[in-house]
Design a protein around this nucleic acid. Structure first.
Lengths: 236, 236
DNA sequence: GCAAAAGTGTTAGAATTACACCCATGC
DNA sequence: GCATGGGTGTAATTCTAACACTTTTGC
């Protein structure tokens, strides 16, 4: 690890895969590129590392800039770095990609350089119907994979819910992200039975078109889920 | 994601956390630094990214240089990037850290810049008895954590074994890495019962000081373990 | 009342755990 | 023979999955 020799210096950027669940579908925040290359294409939000700024800090800054969500409502973690030499036609760029989970409330804001931003369902990106700029299609596929896996063993699905939510809303998050139906009764028992996962508020949900009102919960202190919720059958 | 503007260019390095199991203990490959800063301290092997080289390729190159193992015997995967602004006193360095699992056979080779290399048990690093250069102590802790978790749901433990091995040898790998004893009978049934995990060679192990000879196996095609082998009790 | 959604009961099957016991070898 | 380690048997317990049933609401 010899260090600051200037012989080869890629640019370093931080990109964000910001996910939410809206209208029952798993969606990701994308920005429309305002300049070449890939002008007019959709891409992941991101930007350069500032001098003296930690990677995590840069990701947090970008997240707030792009979504306006408060950091304590969201989950942010590093996923992995991408550094293929030809991934950016302008030159060598190594990007460190972060995964963010935010509640539906987050409104995307147009970037400072006049790009537009929008929530887009992940499905057409995964199946190739929507093509993203750079290697971002591949990055999104990796990020979706990682996000799906995280739901099994962590309580991070609650990050997609508002401050108070019902067990059914939480189950809806799992179903949207995994794309499979889950048994309501078993799901409910599992999440309410895991100590520290959910904290009952005592309140009841207002029922819309009939049906028994559901109990309301907040996120609990636990971050891991024991035992895990395994998604049925299909491979990783 | 505006790219090749030269405004702030950290150096990018690739570091390796190369693990093996030797003499019943979980060990990591370290190099002794030959120059300042941290001269004489132990550090992770690694180096700069070459021009036009992918991150994965750089990691693979370093692995072969440092251990001499053939790539197809080893497992190599990216772990995460570290980029705290003060992590290297010489200037801004972002490092992408890789995890490698190699069989005991791998002999560390002294680096080209006259550093010595050695296998060291991870325990004294985790408990703080051995202090590493830079933030490498923290990186090793993260890498050990990740490695321990990987054993639960993947067949990667076989990467620490020679080409042919017994179930007991494989169990020894788990016990060394997790630091807990496992039930021999149940472990054996689980790994031999998972289709595709192990392929019997038909051969038998030579028995050293008595005892029934054990069947020999090779790595099978499967990479994931279903159901997983959960380590007992203690938290992640 | 009736539909809809929440929550509880129940049961068969699978997995996990902790052992007891037999087998094959070196000495 | 006897110690040593490999492999199989088995029973208690827990987890999972599927589905029936009861409760509480809006209309």
């Amino acid at each position: 690890m010899s260090a600051a020799s200037a012989r080869h210096r890629p640019a370093v950027t931080v990109d964000l895969a910001v996910f939410t669940v809206r209208e029952g579908t798993f969606q990701i925040l994308l920005v429309e590129r305002g300049k070449e290359p890939f002008r007019g294409c959709w891409a992941l939000p991101g930007g350069h590392l500032d001098a003296g700024e930690d990677l995590d800090a840069a990701a947090a800054r970008e997240l707030v800039e792009e979504t306006g969500v408060a950091l304590d409502c969201a989950h942010l973690e590093q996923m992995r770095a991408y550094g293929a030499p030809d991934r950016d036609p302008r030159g060598r760029v190594v990007t460190v990609c972060y995964l963010a989970f935010v509640p539906d409330a987050a409104a995307p804001v147009a970037g400072d350089d006049a790009r537009s931003a929008a929530w887009m369902p992940v499905a057409p990106i995964l199946d190739g119907a929507t093509v993203l700029a750079f290697d971002h299609g591949r990055i999104v596929a990796d990020a979706v994979d990682q996000a799906r896996g995280k739901l099994e063993s962590t309580t991070l699905a609650t990050r997609f819910c508002p401050a108070e939510f019902t067990v059914s809303e939480l189950r809806g998050v799992y179903e949207a992200i995994w794309g499979v139906p889950l048994d309501q009764a078993n799901f409910s028992r599992k999440v309410t039975g895991t100590t520290g996962a959910l904290a009952p508020t005592g309140g009841q949900s207002s029922t819309r078109h009939g049906g028994r009102p559901a109990a309301l919960y907040r996120r609990g202190p636990a971050t891991t889920l024991h035992p895990a919720i395994l998604r049925p059958a299909q491979e990783r």
